[in-house]
Design a protein around this nucleic acid. Structure first.
Lengths: 111, 111
DNA sequence: TCCAATGTTCGAAGATTGTCGAACCAGCGG
DNA sequence: CCGCTGGTTCGACAATCTTCGAACATTGGA
């Protein structure tokens, strides 16, 4: 009974957005590489394999940044085979921090 | 002729908000102490002497945080006598990043 | 003139962060 | 079964950040 209705592959732990301090959310966004990832996710709208993001950093670094985003409650990750698919938790974000993502992305895109 | 129309006391250098990278603005907000300062400034609406902010850090630390906020374009500082009065650059902020401050402050206040 | 008050600046200590290569793990395809 | 591929994890290193006390600057008043 340790399996509580999950599929046979463990889902990654992703925090409730309420339980993440605002400062952590902001800190997650306060990095150029991570902001590029978030921007890409937001533009596409859907989910992307981790390997999609090639922003001039190594595999290890990219993995690290995706972990930061996930643990800040900004993204959700689905495991499928050897790949992991990432997507932005936009609705939740917009509900809890209305306007934040739009403001940040607007600025980032407008440059 | 080094004085270019300024009053006889040099105003502190405060960057144009456009020229501050978004990540710097976010980084400035991504700290518990600085967020408390910003929250206090936003609630009050007006300007406050630096000494007003007693959030359990030393004078030196407070001075440091106020400098970070100022150089991120979040606050403006007026020098008067031995005191410095700080205020939030709310209008500019709201114009360039509409919704950002509200989202962050709402979250911070709602806790 | 001398002192008190308000802030800033200067190290320095300690923690956190971003980055990488190397090693590792798990599927998938021969 | 063996190797490739997509990702993670593990040190390690350098840079940055937060924090403090102590020293300094400047103003205003007794």
């Amino acid at each position: 009974m340790s399996n509580m209705g999950y599929p046979d592959h463990m889902e990654l732990h992703e925090p409730e957005l309420r339980e993440v301090p605002v400062t952590a959310v902001l800190a997650a966004l306060a990095d150029e590489v991570r902001l590029q990832i978030v921007r890409a996710l937001a533009e596409g709208g859907g989910e992307y394999a981790c390997g999609t993001f090639e922003f001039g950093v190594s595999k290890a670094t990219r993995s690290h940044h995706l972990k930061v985003l996930r643990e800040a409650g900004l993204t959700r990750t689905r495991v499928a085979g050897t790949s992991r698919y990432v997507r932005l938790r936009r609705e939740e974000l917009d509900r809890l921090y209305p306007g934040l993502l739009d403001a940040v992305l607007g600025a980032a895109t407008a440059s």
